[in-house]
C-alpha cells in the first residue's frame, strides 16, 4: 500500500513535468496547428538556464524559475521570428521540417558550448516528511503545486483574457483576425513566448527532480511530452495536463511491473491503441468532414 502510494507520488512528479512541457506543445499547436518540434530543446535550454542561474549566479529559487522561463520565452520568440515567420504562408510541412532543423541546431549548439553533462545544485532545501510510512519530499510538492498553478494560469489566460480570445480566434481563422484590428504577429509572438516559457519552467522543474542535465535531454522527453499532448487531444489545455499525468502513470507503473527496458514499449503501444480507438485524443474534438 505504502509502496503503491509512493509510486503514485512518483507518477505525480513525472506527470507534472510532462504536463507542463505538453502545455507548451499544445499551446503552439492549438493556435497555429504547427508541431513545434524544437519545443523539447527549448525545455533543455530552460534546464541549462536554470543551471547557469543556480550554479554560476547563485540566485534564489523563485528568481531562477523566472529567469529560466523568461530566458526560454525570449529564445522561443526569436526562433519564431527568424525561422517560422518567413514560412507562415509556405506548406505546413516546410515549417515542421524547419522546426526539426531548429531543434537539431539548438541541441548541437549547446553541445558545442557545453560538451559534458552538468549537475544542477540544489535550489531548495530538500525536506522530507514522513506521512505514515510515505515519504513526501518538498521537491515533489513544489513540482506538483507549480504545475497546477501554471495550468490554471494558462487556462485563465486563454479563456478569460482578451489576448486569450485573440489566440482562440487566430486558431480558428488566421486570415480574418487582422480584419478585427488585431496584429497577428503580436499574438503569435505572445503564443510562442508563453509556450516556450512553459518549456523553460518545465526545464527548471526537471532539474530539481533529476539534477543531471545534458544537451540531448530534450529529444526524448520532448517527444514524450508531445505524445502526452496528443493523448489528451492536442490543442486542448486540459487534455495536455491529462495526457501528461497518464503518460507519467503508465511509465511509472510499467517500470514497477516490468524491467525498465519495457517502459517505452508499453508507453508507445498504449498510445497506438488509444489512437486507434480515439484518433483525436481523449479530450480532442474530431474535425467534421466537410464535403
Amino acid at each position: 500500500m505504502v509502496y503503491i502510494s509512493q509510486q503514485l507520488l512518483n507518477m505525480l512528479q513525472l506527470g507534472s513535468i510532462y504536463a507542463v512541457i505538453a502545455l507548451g506543445y499544445t499551446m503552439v499547436y492549438g493556435v497555429l496547428s504547427l508541431i513545434n518540434f524544437a519545443h523539447g530543446d527549448l525545455f533543455m535550454i530552460g534546464a541549462f538556464l536554470c543551471f547557469i542561474a543556480t550554479a554560476k549566479l547563485h540566485l534564489p529559487f523563485v528568481v531562477v524559475l523566472v529567469v529560466a522561463a523568461i530566458g526560454t520565452a525570449a529564445i522561443g520568440m526569436a526562433v519564431e521570428r527568424l525561422a517560422y515567420r518567413p514560412l507562415r504562408d509556405a506548406p505546413k510541412v516546410s515549417a515542421i521540417i524547419t522546426a526539426l532543423g531548429v531543434g537539431v541546431f539548438i541541441e548541437n549548439f549547446t553541445l558545442a558550448l557545453s560538451p559534458y553533462p552538468r549537475h544542477v545544485p540544489e535550489m531548495l532545501p530538500n525536506v522530507s516528511w514522513n506521512l505514515g510510512g510515505l515519504t513526501v519530499s518538498s521537491i515533489q510538492g513544489v513540482i506538483v503545486v507549480l504545475s497546477v498553478l501554471l495550468m490554471v494560469g494558462l487556462d485563465f489566460i486563454v479563456r478569460k483574457t482578451r489576448y486569450g480570445m485573440a489566440m482562440r480566434a487566430l486558431a480558428w481563422d488566421i486570415k480574418t483576425l487582422p480584419l478585427m484590428g488585431v496584429s497577428v504577429n503580436a499574438i503569435i509572438a505572445l503564443t510562442f513566448a508563453i509556450g516556450a516559457g512553459f518549456g523553460g519552467a518545465a526545464g527548471t522543474m526537471y532539474a530539481m527532480a533529476f539534477p543531471v542535465i545534458d544537451p540531448y535531454m530534450g529529444i526524448m522527453i520532448g517527444w514524450k511530452a508531445f505524445i502526452a499532448a496528443v493523448v489528451g487531444g492536442i490543442g486542448s489545455i486540459r487534455g495536455a495536463m491529462l495526457g501528461g499525468y497518464i503518460l507519467g502513470a503508465v511509465e511509472t507503473f510499467a517500470a514497477v511491473a516490468l524491467p525498465s527496458t519495457y517502459r517505452d514499449f508499453i508507453a508507445f503501444t498504449l498510445l497506438l491503441i488509444l489512437l486507434i480507438f480515439r484518433p483525436n485524443g481523449i479530450l480532442g474534438v474530431p474535425k467534421t468532414l466537410k464535403v
Binding site: A90, P91, T98, N108, A112
Partner: peptide, 21 residues
Amino acid sequence: GQWRMVIMPLLLVLLMIFRPK
C-alpha cells in the same frame, strides 16, 4: 568537428526559408 551538426541544421533551415519546397 562538432560544429558540423550546428551548421547542417542551419543550412536546412535557410533552405526551407528561401526554398520551402
